[in-house]
């Protein structure tokens, strides 16, 4: 059974013309913008399936670019995303690909920050403006943005998870869902922790200083 709330049935409030090709595409970019949290020098969007065939007609290019600039799906600046990107010194490109993907509305985003850090993410626009990221920097994940979500990069060693969840429980935060992905045993792992409550800055600081945690970021709930 599919789960819908009022925010899906009478919403989202969005820039047209298509919830999956415009709003969902924007949310993919927007989510990555909040994960990277640094100004970008360049970004390349590789478009697959229906995205590749119809991206011009549906403004998918503007929506993706607007999203990565930090615009939400209802932000009227999406229409001017290309001009705004150029003015801010962000170079961008769109490459349609004929390669088959699991979902017809898929995009791969390769971004480089002004500091020279490279990012790669794959997102799917799964209908009604909803999206999920399925890969970040080569690691498979599943991130929908429906919850306040902590993303950690940490060493895949015993007790690491216990240390992370201890900090969360100390702040009286309820974990809604938790997923763990790793490249291979003993190497880097990614934790995706979805929570009901807002997370104070102090919790994130405490997570960041755990020995073996190399990266912590919080993405606030994107869906209403």
């Amino acid at each position: 059974m599919k789960s819908y709330t009022l925010f899906d049935i009478i919403g989202p409030i969005m820039i047209g013309p298509s919830s999956s090709h415009t709003a969902g595409a924007c949310r993919i970019g927007y989510t990555l913008h909040h994960i990277i949290k640094a100004p970008l020098k360049s970004v390349v969007f590789t478009l697959y399936g229906s995205f590749a065939k119809t991206y011009v007609g549906h403004g998918t290019d503007l929506a993706l670019l607007g999203g990565i600039l930090g615009f939400k799906p209802d932000d009227k600046r999406i229409v001017s995303a290309k001009e705004i990107a150029s003015d801010s010194g962000l170079s961008f490109d769109f490459k349609p690909s004929a390669e088959e993907t699991r979902h017809p509305n898929t995009v791969k985003i390769n971004a480089v920050t002004k500091a020279g850090q490279s990012w790669e993410a794959i997102g799917e626009s799964i209908g009604g403006g909803k999206m999920q990221l399925i890969q970040i920097n080569g690691i498979d994940i599943q991130f929908t943005g429906a919850y306040n979500t902590l993303i950690t990069h940490h060493k895949d060693t015993p007790g690491m998870l216990a240390q992370i969840t201890a900090v969360i429980s100390k702040h009286a935060i309820n974990i809604a869902n938790m997923k763990l992905y790793r490249e291979s045993r003993g190497l880097k792992a990614i934790g995706i922790i979805e929570m009901d409550e807002d997370i104070p800055e102090s919790a994130i600081e405490q997570l960041a200083i755990i020995d073996g945690v190399s990266y912590v970021t919080l993405i606030e709930r994107i869906y209403e």
Binding site: G16, P17, S18, K76
Partner: peptide, 18 residues
Amino acid sequence: KVNAGMGRIVASPTAGSC
């Protein structure tokens, strides 16, 4: 028309029926 022109609308339930 506003939807087609990339203006702001409310999907209700979808953009195609807004």
